[in-house]
């Protein structure tokens, strides 16, 4: 297990270095950093001085090393457009995105798993067919259009829920949360559903196909023959054995959720990192783009690593197999 973790750690490190290289290339070679920072009236001498001060005249490999060292200390330079430290700007918006992502992931799991179990157990019931057709439509609807539809129904026509912003937020240390106020929770509902719907259908379909396979196995038949109540068989024996792929997909999807938050945040004007990133793409604000890329890569790598370790926890067979070897 230790050897496995170390190997994964090395792979993770490799991914991070590759991503850092891409981010650095973006930063260094797309547009001239000096041109972006100074005004038109700056003299060539001043430009050259700035160039020297930023270290842009050093060898590229030295610059790359410096870039990585700075990144490791969460120093991604200054935004071209806002003239503020990038790390600070992203830090301020991190809680909004993380709250949105985590709530949608919880929504996807809490709704998706029971729906998957139900459709797996009652294959031919009318409700199952409704769920399945709905999930196909759900997969085909682009995220942003789901958001627009929800706004159209619940904000414009019914006027139940707000269509933009985070509502009132409470500051706890450096973390700002919208989960403690009523308006904050109301503001979270539509974006969280929009963001989690795709994952929900994915989880539902996955649990369904796994359940279909598991309930055909012998040990489930034996459990039924022993006269165990249906609830025990379905949830304690069958569902438990479908969870390995579900954990993998859900874990990997958490990364996708954070990335897809860009779209949801744009539709709902949610003040998170995704919106910041999108604005930086439109304004070619390279330091923010580079920092966001590094942050997302880090989250992905971290999530993958945790998911790998979770396997061992969920599936005892993996532990014994390794022990025998």
């Amino acid at each position: 297990m230790l050897a496995f973790s170390i190997r994964r750690l090395f792979q993770a490190l490799l991914v991070m270095i590759v991503v850092a290289l891409i981010a650095f290339t973006l930063f260094r070679f797309v547009g001239d950093p000096v041109n972006q920072m100074v005004g038109v009236e700056t003299t060539p001498e001043q430009r050259e001085a700035l160039r020297e001060r930023l270290g842009l005249n050093d060898a590229v490999i030295v610059q790359f090393a410096r870039f990585i060292l700075n990144a490791a200390q969460f120093d991604f330079g200054t935004s071209y457009q806002f003239k503020q430290p990038v790390a600070e700007m992203i830090g301020k918006r991190l809680p909004a995105t993380l709250e949105l992502s985590v709530v949608s992931a919880i929504f996807a799991v809490l709704v998706g798993i029971p729906m998957g179990v139900y459709t797996g157990l009652n294959r031919d019931s009318f409700l199952s067919k409704v769920f399945l057709s709905a999930s196909l439509v759900g997969i085909s609807l682009p995220t942003f259009f789901i958001g627009i539809l929800l706004i159209f129904i619940f904000s414009v026509n019914l006027q139940w829920l707000p269509s933009f912003g985070r509502g009132e937020v409470v500051q706890i240390g450096w973390w700002s949360t919208g989960l403690l106020t009523w308006s904050g929770i109301k503001a979270l509902v539509l974006p969280a559903i929009t963001l989690g719907l795709f994952q929900m259908t994915l989880i539902m379909r996955l649990v369904r196909s796994e359940m279909l396979e598991v309930i055909r196995t012998d040990y489930i038949k034996f459990a039924r023959a022993r006269g165990l109540p249906n609830r025990t068989v379905n949830y304690r024996h069958a569902l438990k054995n479908t969870l390995v792929p579900v954990i993998t997909i859900t874990g990997l999807q958490l990364g996708t959720i954070i990335a897809f938050a860009i779209i949801t945040e744009t539709v709902f004007q949610w003040p998170g990192m995704g919106l910041l990133f999108l604005q930086s793409v439109q304004n070619v604000d390279i330091p923010i783009m580079a920092a966001y890329l590094m942050l997302i890569a880090f989250l992905f790598v971290l999530i993958n690593f945790v998911v790998d370790l979770l396997y061992f926890y969920v599936d005892p067979r993996l532990r014994t197999e390794r022990a025998i070897k």
Partner: peptide, 21 residues
């Protein structure tokens, strides 16, 4: 490495780079 990133993010980054260039 690329598979770990969603398509939309990669497309956005390339677009951003193209704007810069």
């Amino acid at each position: 490495v690329q598979l770990t990133f969603p398509a939309i993010l990669i497309a956005l980054l390339i677009d951003g780079a193209a704007r810069g260039l």
